[in-house]
């Protein structure tokens, strides 16, 4: 990796490179330079240049696979594929260490057994985030989730609280659910998959209004 977290964020400063990153991040499966070139209407060499810069900065992970499914002699060289790196990059200037504090809070909540108070606070925080007329999808994005439509629900490709969710899954996922219940009122439930957020949100049509019954 080149340049640490500041370098990683700096690599996104160039608009075209940022578009490349956003395309890869939104893709369901790893993508090749050809996919990116086609999607963004740029040359393959330019796409590869941006992809490799993003990989150097630690924002993308690289793997190799034969796309055709062929094997053995004549199958051709494996394609270089890119996917969004799992690593978390946070830049705050001046430096702040909220992650450590979050772990300390989570330890205290578990030790004292005050999860109900945590969930209530998260629900209130979620309710404060509502804005009239905003769609569920837009509100999810504003809160740091990456919604992907899956039938009747939004699945969330990332966990905005991933670091502390790994050390304290029960309390963090519980708070996460409560936050989204506060924001949406209903149609929110725990449904963990191997990757991504543990919560799904019904796509519905009602936006974020008419949730007064919750309080």
């Amino acid at each position: 990796m080149v340049g640490g977290d500041v370098g990683a964020v700096g690599a996104l400063g160039e608009p075209q490179r940022r578009a490349v990153y956003e395309h890869v991040a939104a893709a369901v499966a790893p993508v090749s330079r050809n996919d990116v070139a086609e999607a963004l209407g740029i040359g393959r060499n330019l796409a590869a240049h941006h992809l490799d810069k993003l990989a150097d900065a630690g924002l993308l992970d690289v793997s190799f696979a034969r796309l055709s499914g062929r094997t053995g002699p004549g199958a051709g060289r494996p394609s270089k594929l890119y996917r969004r790196a799992a690593a978390e990059h946070a830049v705050s200037l001046p430096p702040r260490g909220y992650r450590v504090l979050a772990e300390v809070f989570a330890d205290a909540v578990e030790a004292a057994g005050v999860e109900p108070a945590l969930y209530a606070a998260a629900r209130e925080q979620g309710a404060r985030q509502r804005a009239d007329g905003e769609t569920r999808e837009d509100l999810l994005r504003r809160l740091g989730y990456e919604p992907v439509a899956d039938g009747d629900v939004w699945r969330l490709r990332n966990c905005p609280f991933d670091g502390v969710a790994r050390t304290h899954p029960a309390v963090v996922c519980g708070a996460n659910l409560a936050l989204l219940e506060g924001a949406f009122g209903d149609g929110v439930r725990i449904d963990p998959r191997p990757e991504g957020c543990c919560v799904v949100v019904e796509r519905g049509t009602g936006g974020t209004k008419n949730n007064g019954s919750l309080f």
């Binding site: 999860e115 899954p169 996922c173 519980g174 963990p192 191997p194 543990c198």
Partner: peptide, 12 residues
């Protein structure tokens, strides 16, 4: 942590 068991943990 990644199955339906998570919801039981959440509600413990």
């Amino acid at each position: 942590f990644r199955s339906g068991h998570l919801d039981v943990l959440r509600r413990r």
